[in-house]
Design a protein around this nucleic acid. Sequence first.
DNA 1: ATGGTCGCGCAGCGA
Length: 257
Amino acid sequence: MRIATWNVNSLNARLGRVEAWIDQAQPDVLCMQETKLADTAFPAMTFQSLGYDTVHVGEGRWNGVAILSRVGLDDVQAGFADGGPADPEARVVWATCGGIRVASVYVPNGREVGHDHYHYKLGWLARLRADLDANCKPTDAVAVCGDFNVAPTDLDVWDVTRFEGATHVSPPERQAIAALEEWGLEDVFRRKHQSGGLFSWWDYRAGMFHKGEGMRIDLVLASASVAERVEWVLIDRNARKGKLPSDHAPLVVEVRA
DNA sequence: ATGGTCGCGCAGCGA
C-alpha cells in the first residue's frame, strides 16, 4: 500500500500536475493540503474517474485538506473530535483507508515566534495529540500525514544559522512533534534516511530550490504497526521542478500489506 | 542587484 502526502498550494492551480503525478506515482492513498477550495469546488469526479474515493474539508480561499483513496475510505472525521470547540479553519480530516487510520493535516504556519498565530499553532498541535488520545490507540494502525510546518531536527533545514529565532525550528514547536512521537508515532522518513539536506519544501523566491535551500516539514508520522511495515520512503523532488510547481514536493511511503 | 515568487483576486496579505 502506497501512501503519499502533498501540499499542493491550490488544487485549482495544480490540478493538471496532480493528475499527472497520480498517473505516474500510483498512490493508493493521497493526502493533500492547501487545496484552497470550497467543498463545492472540489473536483471529486476527476479523482473518481481515476479510481479514487475522496473526502475534502475546505473553506474556500485558504487551507483545505483532502484524502483520496483507492483502497476504501470509511469513518470520515472532519476536524478534531477531542471534545473541544470546532476549529474555524479547515486543517484536518481523518478516514480509514486499507485498514489504516489516516489523517491529512495542515498545521498552522505560525508566522513569527510569539505571534498570535504561533500560539494558535502550538495549541493546534496539542489538540492533534488530544485528538489521537480521544480516537485512536497507539496499538492501532495510524498514519498522520501532512504539512506540519515544523522541521523536527537541525538535519531538516538547509542552514541552521539562518533559522535562529525563527518559526518551524523553535523548541516548543519541536516539542509538540516530540509529543506526537511520545504518543506512539514515528517519523517514517527518518526511519529510512539518516542524512540531512533532504527537504520537502523550498521557498519560491531567490532560486532556493535550485540552490538546495529548503526544509523537511512534510511528514508521515506512523504508529509502530505501520512503521514496522514501511519498505521505503522518498520525497519526489521531480514534482517540484518544471512549470507551475507547488512549493512542496510529495512524500511517498510504501507499506507492506 | 540590498530584491528575488507564488496564489488569490484585484489590494495587499499570507506563505
